[in-house]
Design a protein around this nucleic acid. Structure first.
Length: 446
RNA sequence: UCCGUAGUAGCUCAAUUGGCAGAGCGGGCGGCUGUUAACCGCUAGGUUCUUGGUUCAAGUCCAAGCUACGGAGCCA
């Protein structure tokens, strides 16, 4: 009779019982007639110990020859042992029986160090490594927490199209696709459709991949990235900030609660995450520029000083965002950006149209903008004028302008970048590890 | 696209002033009853990114290109 198949994450519940594990050899160390296999099954890792005299000799010889990442089915008794490594660790299997499913060929990723290019070329195998396993599990938890929070707040998930006829934002960064002889584009945002959907459902969000053909080569850019975009009818900029703050705090709290083990694996500084509680400081663009200019004055290093130079009216660069975020140990809101540097659909501030009702959320520790949002223009004339001014062409936006004809209301929404959020929460130096298969400027493989 | 750095064994790296191309890990063979990236012995493994140039002699110097990495711009 074959012992019950269990997941390694549940191993503690089976102390003293015979169980079966199915998985892959993460590492093996041998001491002659005693062999240690560190087995992973996707849910965790457990040490399996083989003594020659406790097994059939043919099977023991198989154990002695096990290569890294060979797939096996192991049966044995669970016992507690402080010496046993693993995830969660502290328990090991005394092997009675082992079946080899496949003997893996020489595995390229060894327990030693590797370079980024090599690992990215072997991403299909790299995802098996502890650190990557932990990060991608945290990513899944972050996405679930965002969706749970929105669902609980009365938002409805409404999917938006990937293939679209018009630009959401800058026309230079679109991927063009051939749509039966006509031009179409991969979506950069679902926002315009969200604005239609709120008139049907009140509060909605979309979640999916977005595509930007930007020639960006930085630690925070991907060509294909995932974005979650809530949109709310009858919503002001201040209420929008409340929503963003509530969601981000919930997400961080959920990761701390559900993924402590994974945070330990990646050696994240937990205090930095525990600090993420409401309220987040809210400063105006005017205030932010003043703070940056004061910071600029205090710097002696000419190179750094040059990077941080800014005049009112300019958009923030990456060094500006980092410098601003460093002034706080929580995310910080910056609102009322100059209208000229923002998208055509953002509402101008009443009585001061050179700034608009926009807000970015900057993550701490140099992770930069993770959220961008705004109140949207709900006046038809003003919106049409802006579309003309940007040279976007009214035909493609006909349906979008329609929304302002049939019960238009003040509304607002934002987009949160999943990969940047994961990079921040995990404390990673680059977004390429936050997504299973990153699409970068010079990489679409594997 | 611009600026900077790098490219040597399957991987991570070393190689003095331009003078015999090396180590660890991984692989193979052998040993070991508590290993934690085990350890010990033996062993195989090279178009030094490409092309051209300087030189008695180039991994090393020069030129161009390719690729990667770091940064900028743009953005989430």
């Amino acid at each position: 009779m074959v012992a019950e198949v269990i997941q390694i994450k549940d191993i503690a519940a089976y102390e003293g019982q015979d169980v079966t594990l199915r998985g892959w050899v993460y590492n093996r160390t041998g001491k002659g007639r005693l062999q240690f296999i560190l087995l992973r099954d996707g849910s965790g890792q457990a040490q399996c110990v083989a003594f020659k005299k406790e097994m059939e000799s043919a099977e023991f010889e198989i154990v002695r020859g096990l290569t890294q990442e060979s797939s096996v089915i192991v049966s044995g008794a669970v016992r507690a042992d402080d010496r046993a490594p693993g995830i969660p660790g502290g328990y090991e299997i005394g092997i009675h029986k082992l079946e080899l499913v496949q003997e893996a060929q020489e595995y390229p990723i060894t327990p030693k160090e590797h370079g980024t290019e090599f690992l990215m070329n072997h991403r299909h195998l790299w995802v098996r490594s502890n650190r990557q396993w932990a990060i991608l599990r945290i990513r899944a938890t972050i996405i679930k927490a965002m969706r749970d929070w929105l669902d609980d707040q009365g938002f409805l998930l409404v999917d938006t199209p990937i293939i679209t006829p018009a630009a959401g934002e800058e026309t230079t960064t679109l991927f063009e696709v051939d749509y039966f002889g006509e031009k179409a584009f991969l979506a950069q945002t679902g926002q315009l459709y969200n604005e239609a959907n709120i008139m049907a459902f009140g509060k909605v969000y979309c979640f999916g991949p977005t595509f930007r053909a930007e020639k960006s080569k930085t630690r925070r850019h991907l060509i294909e990235f995932w974005m979650l975009e809530p949109e709310i009818a009858f919503c002001s900029l201040e209420e929008l900030m409340d929503i963003e703050e509530g969601m981000v705090c919930y997400v961080v709290a959920q990761v701390l609660e559900k993924r402590r083990q994974e945070l330990d694996i990646i050696e994240r500084d937990l205090d930095k995450l525990i600090a993420i509680t409401p309220p987040f400081t809210r400063i105006s663009y005017d205030d932010a520029v003043a703070r940056l200019q004061a910071r600029h004055e205090s710097i002696d290093d000419p190179e750094l000083k040059d990077e941080l130079a800014i005049e009112w009216g300019e958009d923030f660069g990456s060094p500006h965002e980092t410098a601003l975020a460093e002034m706080f140990d929580k995310p910080v809101f910056v609102y009322h950006y100059p209208t000229a540097v923002k998208a055509f659909y953002m509402t101008p501030v009443e009585g001061r149209s050179q700034v608009c009702r926009s807000v970015d959320l900057l993550a701490p520790e140099g992770y930069g903008e993770i959220i961008g949002g705004s109140e949207r223009i709900h006046d038809e004339q003003l919106l049409a004028a802006n579309i003309d001014k940007m040279g976007l062409g009214r035909e493609a936006y006909h349906w979008y302008l329609d929304l302002r004809k049939f019960g238009t209301v003040p509304h607002a929404g934002f987009g949160i970048g999943i990969e940047r959020t994961v990079a921040w929460i995990c404390g990673l130096s680059h977004v390429r590890e936050t997504i299973p298969y990153a699409r970068l400027l010079n990489r679409k493989y594997p």
